[in-house]
């Protein structure tokens, strides 16, 4: 876990995967969790605070473009 960011213990989207088939935590999820999780998953604070090893940073924070795939109807 990064030492440059504070991880909310009560945000289920920020907890590490504990099981391969772990499902979405709808029972613990609040709307305010999303923004925090997206910012953390992207690793923006980490990137801003570090000028070194940029290549590794890019890979570690990479955004898959798959999220943009639309639903099929």
């Amino acid at each position: 876990m990064s030492d440059m960011t504070t991880i909310s213990n009560d945000n289920p989207l920020l907890q590490p995967f504990t099981a391969l088939h772990e499902t979405a935590p709808f029972d613990r999820l609040l709307p305010e969790h999303f923004l925090e999780a997206i910012q953390e998953a992207y690793g923006l604070p980490k990137l801003k605070s570090s000028k070194s090893n940029r290549w590794s940073m890019l890979i570690s924070r990479i955004l898959s473009w798959r999220w943009m795939l639309q639903d099929v109807v």
Binding site: L29, I38, A41, S60, R61, L63, W67
Partner: peptide, 11 residues
């Protein structure tokens, strides 16, 4: 890469 973000975005 980015599976955490992908998961959050999808939800």
């Amino acid at each position: 890469a980015g599976r955490g973000l992908e998961r959050t975005s999808a939800i």
